Simulated assay, not measured.
Amino acid sequence: MLLWINGPFGGGKTQTAYELRRRLAGSVVCDPEHVGFGLHRMTPPGLRGDFQDLPAWRQGVFEVLDRALGGHDGVVIVPMTVVEPGYFAETVGRLRERGHDVRHFALLAERETVLRRLRERGFGHAVRLVGGKDAPLRRESFAVSKLDLCLERLGGEEFAEHLWTDRLTVPKVADRIAASAGLTLAPDTDGPLRGRLRRVWTGLRHVRFD
């Protein structure tokens, strides 16, 4: 089974993916961004854009996930924002056509909730300390520029199942996804402090410099 966790940038995809992996024995996280960043590194800076626009990215993601699903016994977890219907068809759609059990979830939240999460992830705290609580999200400018489009597109029927996360903790989001997919997670034994530290560490590990 593949769990594709979609949502706006800053919507909690990565945190949810690693919470699921932590509590779901035998599962792995396969992040399609790595394919995109590899393509960027091979491309002269002046020719770089959104790597999802490259057919090589869509084909590469399909091939890698097809291989992972065919050779790995556990659940494959994919945190990736895809809002273009055609690109969605070339990745999620093709994997389903191949016969794989793909469960798709769009993590949605109010605009202000996502903006708050963007401020908090990665180096967001440092930005606020230096520039104040209303400092512009310079490192997150791409995410902010795509936010309204993401929320609009992902609300469409083709991107169901929808999961509103404004009032849900990361462990609760993972619980909802697992229940919908018929999976059993290990109990969440983290206290509030340990859970917070775990999420900060996960965020720092996935800060992107590309």
Rank of each mutant, 00 (worst) to 15 (best):
P85F: 06
V76F: 10
L24N: 01
V170H: 05
A126G: 09
R48S: 02
G46R: 10
R208H: 10
T43V: 09
A109I: 12
K13P: 00
R96Y: 06
S27F: 04
L47E: 15
H34Q: 14
H162D: 14
D50I: 13
C150N: 07
G182I: 11
L107Q: 03
H72G: 06
P44L: 06
P8R: 11
G49R: 02
R41P: 01
P45A: 03
A186P: 08
L2S: 04
R167L: 11
Y87S: 10
D166Q: 05
L20M: 08
L193E: 15
G191Y: 07
P136Q: 07
D101N: 03
V76P: 01
R111E: 09
S180L: 11
F37M: 12
R116I: 09
D53V: 10
E152M: 07
A109V: 11
P192Y: 09
F51P: 00
G155F: 10
P8T: 14
L118G: 05
G12T: 12
H72I: 14
L151M: 09
V127E: 13
C30Q: 05
P136N: 12
G155Y: 11
L20E: 02
A160I: 08
A109K: 03
V92E: 03
A25T: 15
G46C: 11
H100V: 08
I5R: 07
P79A: 08
V35W: 04
K172T: 13
R198I: 13
G99S: 06
R205Q: 15
A89Q: 11
V130A: 07
E84H: 15
E158Y: 05
T14Q: 01
L65M: 09
G155H: 03
E19P: 00
R176K: 12
R21C: 01
P32F: 04
F9T: 13
A178P: 01
I77K: 00
E158I: 15
G124M: 08
F9L: 14
F37N: 00
R23I: 04
G12E: 05
A106D: 05
L95A: 06
R22Y: 09
R198F: 13
R176V: 15
T16Y: 07
E158C: 12
R205S: 12
L149C: 06
E33S: 08
I77H: 00
A160Y: 06
H125F: 05
G99M: 00
H104I: 10
L168Q: 14
